[in-house]
Simulated scan of single mutants.
Amino acid sequence: MIVIDGHCDVLMKMYEDPSLDFFSERPSSLDVTYPRMCHSNIKVQFFAIYISERIKFPQLDHYLEYAVILHRKIAGDGRIRAIRNRGDLEAVMNGPQRGALLTLEGADALQGNPLYLRTLYELGVRMIGTTWNYANWAADGVLEPRQAGFTRKGKAFIKDCNELGILLDASHLSVRGFWDLAECSNKPFVATHSNAKAVCAHPRNLDDGQILEIIRTGGRIGMTFVPWFVAGEGAAIDGLLKHIDHILSLGGAGTLAIGSDFDGIDRWIPGLEHAGHYDRLALELYKRYPDDVASAILHGNWHSFLMEQLPVH
Rank of each mutant, 00 (worst) to 15 (best):
N136E: 05
K159H: 15
R176V: 06
K159F: 03
L167V: 05
Y134M: 09
P203N: 09
S171F: 08
T131L: 09
Y121S: 01
N136V: 06
P145H: 05
V125F: 02
C184T: 02
K187Q: 15
S174H: 04
L181T: 04
A191T: 07
T131Y: 09
L168W: 03
I215K: 07
C161G: 12
T151Q: 03
D169K: 06
N133T: 15
L164E: 11
V175L: 12
G141T: 04
T131V: 15
N205E: 04
T130M: 13
W179M: 02
P145A: 01
V175R: 14
G129N: 06
Q210P: 10
G149W: 08
N133W: 02
D208S: 15
C161E: 12
A156M: 10
R216H: 11
S171G: 07
N186K: 13
E144H: 14
R204D: 03
W137H: 03
G165N: 08
I158H: 03
R152P: 00
G218V: 06
S185V: 08
D208A: 10
K187N: 11
T192S: 15
K153A: 14
V125R: 07
D169V: 10
F189Y: 15
I158D: 09
L181V: 03
H193Y: 10
I214L: 15
Y134A: 01
T130C: 12
R216K: 15
G218M: 14
P145W: 05
W132L: 06
A139K: 00
W132P: 12
W137V: 05
L168G: 02
L173R: 00
G165W: 09
W179L: 04
K155E: 15
D207S: 07
L164P: 05
L167Y: 05
L120R: 00
F150A: 00
F178C: 02
K187T: 13
T192L: 12
L143Q: 06
G218R: 13
N195F: 13
E144C: 03
N186D: 14
D160H: 14
D207F: 12
G218D: 07
N186M: 07
I158A: 07
C184L: 07
P145L: 08
I128G: 08
S185W: 04
D207Y: 08
D169T: 04
L212M: 09
H172Y: 08
V125K: 01
E183W: 08
A170K: 00
R146N: 14
G154T: 12
G209T: 00
G141L: 09
P188N: 07
I128H: 00
F178N: 04
S174N: 06
